[in-house]
C-alpha cells in the first residue's frame, strides 16, 4: 500500500491507534532502489498487529531529484530506532524527528557515501590503496564522541586543537602523510 510522503506519520498513527487496526508491532523498515534510475526510491514499512495476527506493508515513494527525507516513526515504535538508522546509513534517507540519527553499520567518518545505493560501486568509491591508507591512518580521536568523552570529563584533558576539531564535528580527520 502506498502512502504519500507528507501524510506518512498521520497514516502510521492512525494504523497504530485506531481500534480495529491496532498495528502495534513494527516488523521491519527498509528501502528499495531500482536499477531503473527513473523510478523513485521506496521506503518500506512492515507492520503487524499482534492482537489481530494481521500484516500490512506500507510504502513511501521518494523521488531521487527531491530531498530524500521522511518523517520518523520512532515515537510510535521504539523498534524503529536502529532500523531507521540503518536505512539512513545505507541509503542516505533522512528521518525527520529521529532523536539520534547517526550511521550505525559504517563508522561515523565514513566518507564514501551510501553503500546500498545503486550508484555506489560494489568495491567502494575509493581505490584499494586509498582504503588501506585510511585504515592505517585511523585517528584514535574517532573512538569516542565528544559526548562520550564528556562523561568521563576527559574532554578537558585533550589538547586544545583536538578538542576544537571534535567540537566542530570533524571526528577522526585523516592527517595528510608527511612529505
Amino acid at each position: 500500500m502506498f502512502v504519500a510522503r507528507d501524510r506518512l506519520l498521520e497514516a502510521m498513527t492512525w494504523l497504530k491507534e485506531t481500534p480495529g487496526e491496532e498495528f502495534d508491532y513494527l516488523v521491519d523498515v527498509t528501502a528499495v532502489e531500482f536499477r531503473d534510475r527513473e523510478r523513485p526510491l521506496e521506503v518500506v514499512y512492515f507492520l503487524r498487529s499482534l492482537t489481530r495476527r494481521a500484516d500490512i506493508r506500507i510504502k513511501v515513494e521518494l523521488s531521487t531529484s527531491d530531498e530524500l527525507a521522511v518523517d520518523s516513526v520512532y515515537h510510535l515504535w521504539r523498534g524503529a530506532d536502529w532500523l531507521e538508522r540503518e536505512v539512513f546509513d545505507m541509503f542516505g534517507i533522512t528521518f525527520r524527528g529521529h532523536p539520534d540519527l547517526r550511521r550505525i553499520l559504517m563508522w561515523e567518518t565514513y566518507a564514501e557515501g551510501y553503500p546500498l545505493r545503486k550508484s555506489f560501486p560494489l568495491r567502494g568509491r575509493f581505490s584499494r590503496a586509498e582504503q588501506v591508507r585510511q585504515a592505517l591512518n585511523v585517528n584514535p580521536e574517532a573512538n569516542y564522541s565528544l559526548e562520550e568523552l564528556s562523561i568521563a570529563e576527559a574532554a578537558g584533558d585533550l589538547p586544545d586543537d583536538m578538542r576544537d576539531r571534535l567540537r566542530r564535528g570533524e571526528r577522526g580527520v585523516i592527517p595528510e602523510p608527511p612529505q
Binding site: 545505507m90 550511521r103 550505525i104 553499520l105 559504517m106 563508522w107 553503500p115 546500498l116 555506489f120 560494489l122
Partner: peptide, 11 residues
C-alpha cells in the same frame, strides 16, 4: 556496531 559488516545485502 559494524565491526563485522560485510555488505551481504549489496553482494
Amino acid at each position: 556496531l559494524g565491526y563485522l559488516h560485510s555488505g551481504f545485502e549489496k553482494l
